[in-house]
């Protein structure tokens, strides 16, 4: 599952901007300006819609939200916690 999430996040980022050569799963895409303050709302909604989760203000402020690896982990946990509730 985490790999599906990772690929989806990467696809989203690539849609927003051409990723730098040195970009990897730990790179900070916020700092790199790939997701900026204009694009962040749509980015969040795309993630929420695709994985049926809710991303909070705290999530957005967290370090996890800055890299593909971190974000994939965060989304995965949210999906699992939703599954656990079912």
């Amino acid at each position: 599952m985490q790999d599906t999430i990772r690929l989806f996040v990467l696809e989203l980022l690539e849609k927003k901007s051409r990723l730098p050569n040195e970009f990897d799963d730990t790179s900070d895409f916020i700092k790199a300006g790939i997701v900026d303050s204009i694009g962040i709302i749509k980015f969040i909604l795309e993630l929420e819609s695709r994985f049926d989760i809710e991303i909070t203000g705290t999530d957005i402020e967290s370090d996890e939200f800055r890299s593909v690896q971190g974000l994939a982990g965060l989304i995965s946990r949210k999906i699992n916690s939703v599954e656990d509730l079912k």
């Binding site: 927003k16 204009i38 694009g39 709302i41 749509k42 980015f43 909604l45 795309e46 929420e48 819609s49």
Partner: peptide, 19 residues
């Protein structure tokens, strides 16, 4: 509201998203 936001996400560019 959540469904409406998803609809906007699908149909509007990032700079056009209502906040």
């Amino acid at each position: 509201l959540r469904q409406l936001r998803f609809h906007c996400c699908e149909r509007l560019a990032d700079f056009q998203q209502p906040r």
